[in-house]
Design a protein around this nucleic acid. Structure first.
Lengths: 241, 241
DNA sequence: GGCTACAACTGGTCATACCACTTGACCACC
DNA sequence: GGTGGTCAAGTGGTATGACCAGTTGTAGCC
């Protein structure tokens, strides 16, 4: 399987390195970064490239920049937004099980409410698209093939909910688990292969049955909960159930 | 009330202007931006400053940059994460009521589940902090004074939930409504002034009573639902209830 | 002790030159 | 006609050096 070779820019390298030091705790809240000139020299890049990275780190909520002052690490737990989540999945080369668990939990909560709202708000075309995607899930029982279909299914559901925050949070979550999509698909096997449950949900949405859509969405999104929970325990999470 | 004068950098100005054109639809998905050299000249800034802005626009999911190619507007509805939400609140100088409604809905769903998980997972110190913040809510019945306390209350609840995605989504939401905090506080008056409800929730969390915490959180977070809903209708939202 | 001026340092920007990559056109060969 | 190679023009990526704008600390004066 051939994939494109992606050359990493200097700016990306700097961003990755500094962000990694911050989220891993090597650089803590309040720590002062060296001056731009010193940092550019230390990292072997030009100052403009370094500045690009710093601007992005500031946008990600990891540092605060003040002209004439110095660049300081934030208490990013309190200020960084959901877009930082992909950076937290792997810390020091290891999967952070709290991040994985958080993703599944959030996926369930948002998906459930999105389905409820979708039953109320979606237009006819969206309801049809949801039914079509639910139907398309019968083409295979391989999770790797079903995952993109399910993603499209939920995207339509969230579209139909009319809640743009759910839309964008869903995007943030998807970007986070995309690098381990095959593993996620396997963990969600029970959900992905239950075509009938998806179709019943699509039917409840089509029928504008809000409580039923909510109940079914919750059911679907919980089908694989035992599997991902036990997998997380296997790789180190505390069992809190 | 004097506030610090924030001088806007050229990079910030470029970012704001281009992001505004994209989210307002003036620049649509697939549109090609002029070359960096042409755009820098057109906007009257240097190319490095322009590049800093473009890198940030790419990070925000609004454009895609390819070396040797051109910079293209994404279908950002499908790729931008939650951190873009503040940019969507005001479009063409007007409040987007869908964004406001989305925030309130998401706040309720995440807050409810966070309280449930908090009852299960929080350590003793966090439970105490939650109780302390609930207690602190009796110092006033002015929403403007209560809003920061409530924010801290919910921040602790979300801390205690152990769900980092909720944490960061909450940060993203907070940044979005912060510029209109006084209006939001007024809309949430019924919630913010109901000290007893907050204290009962804190007690349920302290008692590790998960279902009760969930029920009470939902109750608290829905107290002001009629108010924000009618306010949204007044400024133009469709009533979909 | 408080105020002012200055120097040193930091971040912000600009101009210029050059490097790396992409695309399209053209040519040669099979 | 299809494939591969080369070249030119254009785009993004980077570096260097100079200068501007803001911040902080120190010294001197009253």
């Amino acid at each position: 399987m051939l994939t494109p070779i992606a050359r990493q820019t200097a700016t990306d390298s700097v961003f990755d390195q500094v962000a990694g030091e911050i989220v891993s705790g090597e650089l803590g809240p309040g720590d002062i970064l060296p001056s731009e000139r010193a940092l550019a020299t230390a990292l072997g890049v030009s100052r403009p490239a370094l500045r690009e990275a710093l601007g992005r780190l500031a946008q990600a909520g990891l540092v605060q920049i003040r002209q004439g002052g110095s660049t300081q690490v934030t208490n990013w737990n309190d200020v960084a937004g959901l877009d930082l989540l992909p950076r937290l999945l792997l810390v020091n080369g290891e999967v952070d099980v709290v991040v994985v668990r958080s993703i599944f939990e959030m996926r369930e909560v948002i998906g459930t409410d999105a389905a409820r709202l979708c039953a109320r708000r979606a237009d006819t075309a969206t309801r049809e698209r949801i039914s079509n995607e639910a139907g398309a899930m019968s083409i295979s029982d391989d999770p790797a093939e079903l995952a993109p279909i399910a993603l499209r299914f939920w995207r339509q559901v969230i579209n139909g909910s009319g809640n743009i925050a759910y839309r964008m949070a869903h995007n943030s979550l998807a970007v986070t688990y995309e690098p381990m999509m095959d593993i996620v698909a396997e963990l969600l096997r029970r959900e992905l292969t239950d075509v009938r449950a998806h179709q019943e949900l699509a039917a409840a949405i089509a029928a504008a049955d809000e409580p039923r859509a909510r109940e079914l969405a919750r059911h679907v999104l919980r089908l694989s909960e035992p599997d991902w929970k036990s997998a997380l325990i296997m790789i180190g999470a505390q069992d809190d159930d």
